[in-house]
Simulated scan of single mutants.
Amino acid sequence: MAKRPYIVGNWKMHGTRSMLAEARAIDRAAERLMKVEVALAPPATLIHATRKEADLIGVGAQDCHAAEGGAYTGDISAAMTKDAGAGFVILGHSERRTYHQETDADVQAKAASALAAGLNVIICIGETEAQREAGEAEKIVAAQLAGSLPQTPDAGDRITVAYEPVWAIGTGKTPTVDDVNAMHKAIRETLHSVYGDAASEIRILYGGSVNAQNAAELLAGPEVGGALVGGASLSAESFVGIVVAAADGAE
């Protein structure tokens, strides 16, 4: 049986307790739209509160440290993230790779730690505009993915992949539907090379300037299993519009 579309909101470094009203509204909407799996990744300061306020949707984190514990001031381990109420963690987002110089090996280590702590993982990959213009997008993304995937046995059923072209994140630009479909097909082939038949069950999300207006078209691809949503997830109204588009496409 095919998995439900997975729509995940990444709040990034936005949100104080006043934002819990948006989480509650999203949770209420998700109860009416059961054909879609909905989740939010608030900042770490709101994971516990969001889990208490939102009963139906998934709640996750935006990062974790690879180590189980130690002298890492300001960092949060996977076990701590799980203890706070998270069920999953986003890893390898381009903003982490760029601003914190995270490598594929760093992402792989974090993913292994998260899985060991009982978290599911969403692994982000994506090319820059220069890499796409040079005709290297699929090669770059395939290599990123292969280097970031955990080698943990039977990890496939707890992994989601999010393709987010770096040049589309927060810019209002989106790739063509054909480009998205071609990239997701290439990602699927890489997943099969690592996990074999189990790769067929791994959802591949699209992320990058997704909104209620373009969601239906972007989600219609045969290998597009949902969306990782940034700015549009900060408002229940705009985020739920994307969830509705996913639900309509799942009918």
Rank of each mutant, 00 (worst) to 15 (best):
residue 1 M to S: 10
residue 2 A to Q: 12
residue 3 K to D: 08
residue 4 R to H: 13
residue 5 P to I: 05
residue 5 P to Q: 07
residue 5 P to V: 08
residue 5 P to R: 08
residue 6 Y to S: 11
residue 9 G to H: 03
residue 12 K to Q: 00
residue 13 M to S: 04
residue 14 H to Y: 08
residue 15 G to D: 05
residue 16 T to W: 08
residue 19 M to Y: 14
residue 28 R to I: 04
residue 31 E to Q: 14
residue 32 R to V: 09
residue 35 K to M: 14
residue 35 K to Y: 12
residue 35 K to Q: 15
residue 36 V to T: 13
residue 41 A to C: 07
residue 46 L to D: 06
residue 47 I to C: 03
residue 49 A to K: 15
residue 52 K to E: 15
residue 64 C to L: 09
residue 71 A to F: 14
residue 71 A to T: 12
residue 76 I to L: 15
residue 80 M to S: 09
residue 80 M to N: 09
residue 82 K to N: 10
residue 89 V to W: 08
residue 93 H to A: 04
residue 95 E to W: 06
residue 98 T to E: 13
residue 99 Y to P: 08
residue 101 Q to G: 07
residue 104 D to I: 02
residue 109 A to S: 13
residue 111 A to H: 07
residue 116 A to V: 14
residue 119 L to D: 09
residue 120 N to F: 10
residue 124 C to M: 00
residue 124 C to P: 04
residue 128 T to E: 13
residue 133 E to Y: 12
residue 141 V to R: 14
residue 141 V to H: 05
residue 144 Q to K: 04
residue 147 G to K: 07
residue 151 Q to H: 15
residue 161 V to F: 09
residue 162 A to M: 02
residue 162 A to P: 11
residue 165 P to E: 06
residue 171 T to R: 00
residue 173 K to M: 11
residue 178 D to L: 06
residue 179 D to W: 10
residue 180 V to G: 06
residue 184 H to I: 09
residue 186 A to Q: 03
residue 186 A to N: 03
residue 189 E to H: 15
residue 191 L to W: 01
residue 194 V to W: 12
residue 198 A to H: 09
residue 199 A to K: 03
residue 200 S to D: 14
residue 204 I to R: 01
residue 211 N to F: 02
residue 211 N to V: 11
residue 212 A to I: 12
residue 213 Q to F: 08
residue 214 N to K: 01
residue 215 A to K: 00
residue 219 L to K: 00
residue 222 P to R: 08
residue 222 P to V: 10
residue 227 A to H: 07
residue 229 V to F: 10
residue 230 G to Q: 09
residue 232 A to T: 03
residue 234 L to R: 10
residue 241 G to F: 02
residue 244 V to P: 10
residue 244 V to G: 07
residue 245 A to W: 02
residue 245 A to L: 02
